[in-house]
């Protein structure tokens, strides 16, 4: 459709109003200026502008790559430091547990020995006390017998009965049993 239109219009060129793109007088000038301007643009872009742009882009890419590398390195460092810290923490914890265990065992042993010592002491004191009580009681009993014999002698004396001390002692001992 366009070409039919163009042909028709180009045909009109003979009639006076030429179709401008098909006019020939301006073609040398168009080619001349196109060559000069296109070359100028090419030189300006390829010599100065594009290298500068690509330089900037490359520099940025390098910077980003460097930054990422640096970040990875620091991250590794942090991970390692954390591992070391955890290791030391675990070590310290086990050492603390060991120390606590040792202290516990020691204190338990101390406690046991102390208890045993105190127990022995107490039982010795108890024994001493018991023998003393026994002695006191037997002493007391002897006194009671003597008193009872005396009392019995006096009482039967009042009834006018006579008895020897030995007989009285035997009787009292029998009654007290």
């Amino acid at each position: 459709m366009i070409f039919a239109f163009l042909a028709e219009t180009a045909g009109d060129a003979d009639a006076g109003a030429a179709f401008p793109p098909f006019e020939t007088w301006h073609m040398p000038s168009q080619l001349f200026w196109l060559a000069i301007l296109f070359m100028a643009l090419y030189v300006a872009l390829s010599r100065y502008i594009l290298p500068k742009l690509s330089d900037t882009i490359e520099k940025r890419a390098n910077r980003i790559a460097f930054g990422l590398d640096e970040a990875a390195r620091l991250n590794n460092q942090a991970v390692e430091a954390r591992k070391a810290l955890e290791l030391r923490l675990a070590e310290a914890r086990s050492k603390a547990r060991e120390t606590a265990e040792k202290a516990r065992v020691k204190s338990e042993a101390e406690l046991a020995s102390e208890t045993a010592r105190v127990d022995a002491d107490v039982s010795k004191k108890l024994e001493a006390a018991e023998t003393r009580i026994k002695r006191l009681r037997s002493d007391a009993m002897k006194n009671v017998e003597a008193i009872a014999v005396d009392a019995a002698e006096a009482m039967i004396g009042k009834f006018g009965v006579k008895a020897t001390k030995a007989e009285l002692g035997k009787a009292v001992a029998k009654a007290l049993e």
């Binding site: 301006h26 000038s29 168009q30 200026w33 196109l34 643009l41 872009l45 502008i49 594009l50 500068k52």
Partner: peptide, 28 residues
């Protein structure tokens, strides 16, 4: 040869100048 500077050349020059200006200022 007729190498007159025409309106076509003028607007072509404008385009080239604009491209150079745009990228030149942007890249500077």
């Amino acid at each position: 040869f007729d190498i007159s500077f025409t309106n076509a050349s003028g607007f072509m020059l404008l385009g080239v100048v604009l491209v150079i200006a745009f990228f030149g200022i942007a890249a500077r």
